[in-house]
């Protein structure tokens, strides 16, 4: 069902297109205000919930399929062909098969969702996605009794994704959600950004967005969705299970073994952007805390 979630960040919070294109100039003029913001501390941080510019969202990406540098995806993602595109939907579903993008999109209501995105590396952005709820697709696919998890897979095409030519991760990239997480109204399949089709470096043509989890859970350029009974493999979890749990919910009280998760840097503030406190479940505690009732989140991190 569309429109099950209403963001407290409204359309008025989105920078108009002609303005975000010129945001750098605007920012240069607001350096004095930034200084005042630093003194204001936490209160000021809360007020500044305005989506990041298109430039910021599209030039600072973790998409190791195109390289490990933050600007590698912006440099190399143009190599990727996203048309035609299809998703293999299989496992415990009533309508398995190869779904073309047209099949997938049929009857889906694409809406705008302005979500915070918190990377496990302790930086964050606010992104105006366009997409539909994963629940709507799963309902159409028909989830069978006994399915408990949803597994996702990214495209494997080393000739178009140069990062895949080296075994830095166990390709193809895989992720997974518990079925109730997948069915949650906040869980989105995004196909656009700022009202335009998703740029390749952000996971075109279709990607997952799970705003209360660290960014790496939100798998990009999806080619396979499987409904399964057992907890599926997840790439970062396989790489280092101690550092990247299956759940990977944003949690300021559970640190990454190597660094603190208590605070984060909001991208876009320049050299003096400072740090903001990280919010429980990335600020979506009211919406999702009930999913984990009774679970020790320091054990199931």
């Amino acid at each position: 069902m569309a429109y099950r979630y209403r963001s407290p960040l409204t359309r008025a919070d989105v920078t108009p297109k002609h303005m975000y294109m010129n945001r750098r100039q605007l920012m240069a003029g607001s350096t004095a205000m930034l200084g005042a913001g630093l003194i204001g501390g936490r209160a000021a941080a809360q007020e500044a919930l305005e989506p990041n510019s298109l430039e910021e969202i599209t030039t600072y990406n973790n998409f190791y399929e195109f390289g490990t540098g933050k600007t590698d995806p912006a440099s190399y993602a143009h190599m990727l062909t996203t048309e035609p595109w299809s998703i293999e939907i299989d496992g415990m579903v009533d309508n398995p098969g190869t779904w073309s993008m047209a099949d997938v999109m049929e009857g889906m209501t694409v809406e705008e969702r302005i979500y915070r995105l918190r990377c496990v590396e302790a930086w964050s952005m606010v992104v105006p996605w366009n997409g539909f709820e994963l629940a709507d697709l799963l309902t159409r696919v028909g989830v069978q009794e006994g399915a408990r998890y949803v597994a996702f897979e990214t495209l494997m095409r080393p000739e178009e994704m140069p990062g895949q030519q080296r075994a830095i991760l166990d390709w193809p990239y895989r992720e997974g959600l518990r079925l109730d997480e997948a069915m949650h109204p906040l869980t989105l399949l995004a196909t656009g950004l700022y009202g335009d089709p998703l740029p390749n470096q952000n996971g075109a043509p279709i990607r997952l967005v799970v705003p209360w989890k660290y960014g790496f859970k939100s798998i990009k350029s999806i080619v396979r969705i499987s409904l399964v009974e057992e907890m599926p493999e997840a790439t970062w979890n396989m790489q280092n299970p101690r550092e990247y749990g299956f759940y990977s919910n944003v949690n300021p009280n559970v640190d990454h073994p190597r660094w603190s998760q208590a605070t984060e840097r909001r991208i876009g503030g320049g050299l003096f952007s400072g740090r903001e406190p990280t919010l429980m479940f990335n600020g979506y505690e009211d919406e999702v805390a009930s999913l984990y009732e009774g679970m020790d989140l320091s054990v199931y991190y």
Binding site: E55, E56, T59, Y60, K70, W123, R265, G270, L271, S273
Partner: peptide, 15 residues
């Protein structure tokens, strides 16, 4: 570079 935006959108980590 940092002051003039030449270190990307996250200049602190880069610097």
């Amino acid at each position: 570079l940092g002051v003039n935006g030449g270190l990307g959108v996250e200049p602190i980590k880069e610097l």
